[in-house]
Design a protein around this nucleic acid. Sequence first.
DNA 1: ATCGTAGTACGGTCGCTGTCGAACTTCGAT
DNA 2: ATCGAAGTTCGACAGCGACCGTACTACGAT
Lengths: 106, 106
Amino acid sequence: MSTEAVPPPRLPDRSEIRIETVLAALADPVRLELVRQLAATDRELACGAFDVSVSKSTLTHHLRTLREAGVIGGRPQGTARLNWLRRKDLDELFPGLLSGVLAARR
Amino acid sequence: MSTEAVPPPRLPDRSEIRIETVLAALADPVRLELVRQLAATDRELACGAFDVSVSKSTLTHHLRTLREAGVIGGRPQGTARLNWLRRKDLDELFPGLLSGVLAARR
DNA sequence: ATCGTAGTACGGTCGCTGTCGAACTTCGAT
DNA sequence: ATCGAAGTTCGACAGCGACCGTACTACGAT
């Protein structure tokens, strides 16, 4: 019935990505794990494809936080939402940050 | 009167530094600014030498957070405490992280 | 049309953390 | 011995954020 069902969560433009926000997004253990799992594949992952032990609503919360921080992208695909790591943007803005984070012993 | 006035806040060993803790420490705007100021010099900085607009007690809190995270080191010098950035340790643990963070447009 | 699946929105709780002022300690200088 | 400067500690408070369950929406399949 709504003409615009859900305002699609817009991805921040590269120029809008702030380092404090990115760091805060990466600082949470669950979100860091999500990023690791995204970094470990070259495919896009649906929300349900992540292996983390939080509720569905909490997972949504974490993915939105990552999306709004500019760390990941997301696009609807049927009933799913496909997520990917914004590697290129992050690497150009903060060269070395992502690789440094991912280099950490788990 | 105390035999051990203030238990000297011990610096975490390199092997104890955890990426989540480091990221959380860097995520705060005030602490990030402290790190930037430390990165901009090759000297050690006393607490009073930082240019941030928080109270003395809050500054102490932030410096302790950075110290406990393993981001900075600190040693007493007279009544002062001299702080330095643990560049080498961070670079070896998380190569690129620090340079990436510092590359961010302010 | 109905139903199941995927994800989001909402309301609520609880613990953590950034902030401050005031009191205290430690050290050097007078 | 006094004093001042440099930091730390100690409550106290406010706001944020991680978490959950429930209700909801959107889409695809039957």
